[in-house]
Simulated scan of single mutants.
Amino acid sequence: MSAILARKLVDYSSLSLGNMATVYPADHPTLAGEPFSLQEYYARHAPNGSLALLFMPISRHSQNVLASSNRSATISVADDHPDASRARVALIGTVTIFKDLSTAPDVAAIQKCYLKQHPDARHWLPGPREPHIAYWARFDPHTIYYVGGFGSEHYIGYIPLEAYQTAGSVQYDQTAKNIGSGRLHEQIRIL
């Protein structure tokens, strides 16, 4: 159940907006090794829970990811109306950057999906544009940490990656009846 709720939280966020966290590179003149977190747009696209990102090398996150040997980042997503009793999830993973549009898988579908969730991004899509360069990127989570709400009432902990990846839309419909309107809370515990 936690995997389904975590995927629903990420996949059906009305804003498709999370906080991305990266780390300043070792050669940064003043903030080497320090964490950096800021809101970042994403789009749910892949059935396995990977996310599409508009990757702009001018952004601090992009610079940190490019300087990271393993291209690591964390994206955290919370309920649209966050408070301590509501669910939130942290996806820890890696970013694959598609600098060459011809190597990006299914560019037309990614662009359509991204623009559906973020129509304002049409001005910054990858391709020959000025003033900023942009690429498509894919965020692949490898570790999932879920907080269902208060610990005495809800699951808090890691969710197996396979469970998160396979928690699909068929299960959402069945689970929706067990989820309060707008509130993602667990009716049962698993794990």
Rank of each mutant, 00 (worst) to 15 (best):
L31Y: 07
H61R: 00
Y155L: 08
Q165T: 02
Y12T: 14
G18H: 09
R86D: 03
A52R: 11
L184A: 01
R7G: 03
T166H: 15
A32S: 14
W124S: 06
K177C: 02
V65T: 04
R7D: 03
A137F: 15
H45T: 12
I110K: 11
G18T: 00
D11A: 14
Y164F: 15
P131L: 05
A52K: 06
M20H: 11
S69V: 10
T96S: 14
R86E: 06
I156A: 07
E40L: 15
P119D: 04
Y24T: 00
R71E: 01
E34H: 11
M20F: 14
Q174H: 08
S181H: 13
P47F: 15
I133Y: 06
S69E: 08
L51C: 08
S169Q: 08
F55H: 09
E153F: 15
Y145R: 15
L17R: 04
Y146G: 03
Y135V: 09
D27R: 01
E186Y: 02
S37P: 00
P35T: 00
V170A: 10
G157V: 10
R189S: 11
A84W: 14
R129F: 03
K112Q: 15
L115P: 09
R183G: 02
P131E: 01
H28N: 11
T143L: 11
M20Y: 11
S37A: 15
Q117V: 06
G18F: 09
S76V: 00
Q171G: 09
A176R: 01
P131K: 04
A108Q: 14
H132M: 07
D120K: 10
V89I: 12
S13W: 12
A78Q: 10
L66V: 06
G127M: 03
D140M: 05
Y135N: 07
A52P: 01
L31T: 00
S14I: 12
I159C: 04
P82S: 05
W136A: 11
R183L: 12
P57H: 08
G33D: 02
S169E: 13
H154K: 05
V107R: 14
A67L: 00
Q111H: 12
L38S: 10
D27Q: 08
Q165L: 04
H61M: 06
A109G: 14
L5K: 06
R88F: 13
A108V: 15
T30N: 06
V95G: 04
G180K: 02
A87M: 02
A167N: 05
R183M: 02
N178Q: 11
A46K: 08
I190S: 13
I144M: 03
D173C: 04
S69Q: 12
Y164V: 06
H45R: 11
S76D: 02
T143A: 12
T175R: 00
S68Y: 01
H81I: 08
L91H: 10
V89E: 04
P126Y: 07
